[in-house]
Amino acid sequence: MADIPSVLITGASTGIGSTYADRFARRGHDLVLVARDRKRMEALAARLREETGVAIDIVQADLTQASELAVVEARLRDDARIGILVNNAGTALGGGFLDQSTDDVTRLVALNTTAPLRLASAVSPRLAGAGKGAIINIGSVVGVAPEFAMTVYGATKAFILFLSQGLSLELGPKGVYVQAVLPAATRTEIWGHAGADVNTMSGVMDVNELVDAALVGFDRREPVTIPPLPDAEQWNAYQAARQAMLPNVAQAHAAERYRTAV
């Protein structure tokens, strides 16, 4: 058990986060649960301690508040037992961009991008120094699909994907595995935050199935895991098309197609 790292999970009180807690506990990992809802975390921790025997700590924190985020950052920097970070905490908003208040989208960005960035920044030097560990960032397929009309939410998830891919390139050679998980619609409470009734929707994945599939990708050390995507070659083709452009964008002059006015 001494060689099994502890796992810190944000947004751990419900949904994807609590399911990750369940699965990692059953794999023998001690846990640090982070969320705003202490009562739910205590109930989850009590159940998992009884069923699995792992040690579980609870950190009540609102990750949009700098002082509370700093507590979690310090735990990640200082606790050498933590070898896996699950950046799961996030939220969504209802309505379109013109309907959303600036304050609301600012809080959304703080939770969905600033918090996972700061937590990854807090833990990465220690993991890289140890030459082992993992960071799991929960993104969304919306991050590659502006057509889904979730502009700010999608932008935050595009950030998570890019951050994960960049960290994978930087930290992978140092022994740290970084995984971006891109769910599609999943049955969690996030839909209530967006003012939607998930029970009226079709094509919604059960959260247990989502996390179990994501952990298959984790065990395979996939850099990007998209649980609902049937054909992995579609993602590979998307990546290949993007990479094929790269040699063509480092030019001293504008492309010929831009040298003649319409």
Score class of each variant (00 low, 15 high):
Gln165Tyr: 04
Val71Met: 10
Val123Met: 06
Val7Asp: 02
Ala250Ile: 09
Val141Pro: 01
Asp206Ala: 05
Asp22Pro: 00
Asn137Phe: 02
Phe24Ala: 05
Gln65Leu: 15
Ala214Thr: 06
Leu163Arg: 10
Asn248Gly: 15
Arg47Ile: 05
Thr14Val: 09
Thr106Val: 04
Met201Arg: 13
Ser121Glu: 13
Phe218Glu: 02
Val32Glu: 11
Gly203Ala: 00
Ala80Tyr: 05
Leu33Val: 05
Arg26Ala: 09
Leu215Glu: 06
Ala66Tyr: 04
Ile82Glu: 01
Val224Glu: 10
Phe162Glu: 14
Val207Phe: 04
Thr260Arg: 15
Val105Arg: 07
Ser6Arg: 13
Leu98Ile: 14
Asp99Val: 06
Asp37His: 11
Ala134Trp: 07
Asp79Ser: 02
Tyr238Asn: 11
Arg126Ile: 01
Gln234Ala: 11
Val105Glu: 11
Val144Thr: 13
Met1Ala: 10
Val54Gly: 02
Ser18Pro: 02
Phe97Met: 07
Ser168Met: 05
Glu50Ile: 01
Arg126Pro: 03
Leu98Tyr: 03
Ala46Leu: 10
Glu233Trp: 05
Asp78Thr: 06
Arg26Met: 06
Leu76Gln: 06
His253Cys: 01
Gln100Pro: 07
Asp219Lys: 04
Leu246Arg: 10
Asp3Leu: 13
Ala134Met: 13
Ala232Met: 08
Glu50Thr: 14
Ala12Pro: 02
Gly53Tyr: 03
Arg40Cys: 00
Asp78Met: 05
Asp231Trp: 03
Asn87Pro: 10
Thr113Phe: 11
Gly154Asn: 03
Ala21Asn: 06
Ala55Thr: 11
Gly172Leu: 07
Ala80Phe: 08
Asp99Ser: 11
Ile16Ala: 07
Asp62Pro: 11
Leu85Gln: 02
Arg27Trp: 01
Gly83Cys: 07
Leu111His: 08
Ser168Val: 01
Pro223Thr: 12
Arg47Leu: 12
Leu48Ser: 03
Asp3Glu: 15
Val152Asn: 01
Pro173His: 01
Arg242Pro: 00
Val152Arg: 00
Ala244Asp: 15
Glu170Met: 05
Arg40Glu: 08
Tyr258Phe: 11
Ala92Asp: 14
Leu63His: 10
Phe97Tyr: 14
Thr156Ala: 10
Ala115Thr: 09
Pro116Phe: 09
Gly172Phe: 03
Asp104Arg: 14
Ala241Asp: 13
Arg107Glu: 15
Ser6His: 03
Ala21Thr: 04
Arg38Asp: 13
Leu108Gln: 11
Leu167Ala: 07
Gly94Pro: 03
Asp3Gly: 09
Leu76Pro: 00
Glu73Met: 14
Trp191Phe: 15
Ser164His: 01
Phe24Asn: 00
Thr156Val: 12
Met1Gly: 14
Gln234Arg: 12
Val71Trp: 01
Asn137Lys: 03
Ile9Trp: 11
Ala145Gln: 15
